[in-house]
Amino acid sequence: MTLQYQVPDMTCGHCVKTITGAVTAAVPGATVEADVASHRVTVSGTNDHTAVEAAIRDAGYSPITA
């Protein structure tokens, strides 16, 4: 399963690294792709949207289900 989020406050490479680290720590085995230009985060390998959204929020960002 693939989950997609808009993260409007993801604005730089540091944001990408922070979000990627948070999601992979919360959901081991998940693959995270983030595109700063479109503010889109795609998470593959899980269907646990609650854990993914919580990880992004805990990292200080605002995920919106895309």
Rank of each mutant, 00 (worst) to 15 (best):
P28W: 13
K17Q: 02
P8Y: 03
D9Y: 05
D35I: 09
I56A: 01
A30G: 06
A55N: 05
T50W: 00
T42P: 01
V41R: 08
M1W: 01
I56H: 02
V16Y: 02
C12S: 03
A34H: 04
S62V: 14
R40V: 15
G29S: 09
G21M: 02
G45M: 09
G13N: 13
T11H: 11
G21E: 03
T20G: 13
T2G: 06
V23M: 12
V36M: 11
H39I: 01
D58I: 00
I64A: 15
E33P: 01
D9S: 00
I56D: 01
G29E: 12
A37D: 13
T11D: 04
A37L: 04
I19T: 07
R57T: 13
N47R: 14
A25K: 14
M10R: 06
Q4W: 01
T65Q: 09
P8I: 08
S62I: 15
N47G: 15
D48W: 09
G45T: 12
I56K: 04
T2M: 14
N47E: 15
H39G: 06
S38I: 09
L3M: 14
Q4M: 10
D9H: 03
T31R: 08
H14M: 07
G21K: 02
A55M: 04
A22V: 02
S44T: 15
A37Y: 06
V23S: 10
S38C: 08
H49Q: 15
A59V: 10
I56C: 00
D48P: 08
C12M: 03
A25R: 10
G13Y: 10
A30C: 09
T2Y: 03
Y5N: 11
H14I: 01
G21P: 02
V32F: 04
V36S: 07
K17W: 04
S38T: 15
Q6C: 02
K17Y: 00
I64M: 12
T24Q: 13
C15N: 11
A30L: 07
